[in-house]
């Protein structure tokens, strides 16, 4: 086995105990603390017999160790039980709400990277020039603004005042009757505001990050050598400097995997986007524990997988990382 593969395998193995801890910690929060989930189901209006049935249905009448084993088993097989609120298997609810979330966050991530990198290169071309200053101030501003507030302003401007874009949902009411091309257009129109705001918020930090990496690399000798060879400045910036500056970004890409799953909760709530974030939000209101647990575990799984992916990508892209292992 090659050292690279062995290294990746080692990292993957190290993720197993962390996953186990994550699953166990959620169990502790929900079950082992007195006054939690069991009391939640105890509706005082029910007769003792009916209450017993409910407790039995959710397996709460069993001793804790047994509940824990069932919980572990469910987490491994992806069976999170039945939603209190929707009376449906949680797995089906997640399967229905995950695709809209991925559409939204995927678009936002794309926008984030494209806009962030472009701004960073323009800013780094002339440090302390006007583009740099405007980008710095803007990215600081966007960092400080809560996304829900930004979303409200955008709705006020583009939906209420100008009437250009829809302010909520993923499709128009009549979308089902439209031909495929018009349906796609309809989806895109609904996507612009939520994905735009999410992408903009991400682009602010991406731009800061890539700009710092670019300015770091400007000092290096291979760029001096490239300039000595008479390569045009613009080519040096976009090709010679940007490539190594994007190395940390590859790691960042792996680390943004969790964003795809969990990054859009607030935006989904504001724009009534039928995604997982909104599902989790309604579940939190109704204290629909199985749904909340499934979403949390899925989010945590994405973080762990993202870390692993970042490691793998880094080794795959950077020849130095391969040699040192």
């Amino acid at each position: 086995m090659s050292p690279t593969l062995r290294r990746i395998g080692r990292r993957a193995l190290a993720a197993v105990p962390i996953l186990w801890l994550v699953v166990t910690l959620t169990f502790i929060v929900v079950h082992a603390v007195p006054g939690s989930v069991a009391d939640l189901l105890d509706n005082p209006d029910l007769s003792p017999a009916a209450r017993e049935t409910v407790r039995h249905r959710y397996g709460l009448d069993q001793p804790l160790p047994q509940q824990y084993m069932r919980w572990l088993e469910g987490a491994i097989t992806g069976d999170f039980g039945i939603s209190f609120l929707y009376r449906q298997p949680v797995r089906r609810l997640i399967a229905r709400t995950l695709p809209p979330t991925l559409i939204l966050t995927g678009t936002a991530l794309l926008l984030d990277l494209l806009l962030g990198i472009a701004l960073a290169v323009l800013a780094a071309a002339r440090p302390r020039g006007w583009i740099d200053r405007v980008t710095t101030v803007l990215s600081l501003g966007v960092y400080g603004m809560p996304t829900f507030w930004l979303a409200g302003l955008a709705i006020l401007l583009f939906s209420v005042q100008l009437g250009w874009l829809p302010s909520s949902h993923m499709h128009s009411l009549d979308a089902a009757t439209l031909p495929a091309a018009r349906r796609l257009l309809d989806l895109l129109r609904h996507l612009i505001l939520p994905a735009g705001i999410l992408g903009l918020a991400g682009a602010a930090s991406t731009a800061r990050y890539v700009r710092a990496a670019l300015l770091d690399i400007r000092q290096s000798r291979f760029l001096l050598a490239a300039r000595a060879r008479g390569i045009p400045r613009r080519r040096i910036l976009w090709i010679h400097a940007l490539r190594p500056a994007l190395l940390p970004l590859v790691t960042l890409l792996g680390l943004s995997l969790p964003f795809l799953v969990s990054g859009s909760l607030v935006i989904e709530v504001i724009f009534s986007w039928p995604g997982m974030g909104r599902l989790l939000w309604t579940a939190a209101w109704a204290r629909d524990i199985p749904v909340i647990l499934a979403a949390t575990l899925l989010g945590a799984g994405a973080v762990i997988a993202g870390n692993l992916l970042a490691d793998i990508l880094y080794v795959a892209v950077d020849p130095r990382a391969r040699r040192s292992s």
Partner: peptide, 23 residues
């Protein structure tokens, strides 16, 4: 440090919602 790793694995907002919903 493993405990820190595990806690860092949760999306913070999700973890907050989980705790707020239980208590």
């Amino acid at each position: 440090m493993r405990l820190v790793d595990a806690l860092l694995a949760f999306p913070v907002l999700f973890l907050m919602i989980l705790i707020v919903a239980v208590f």
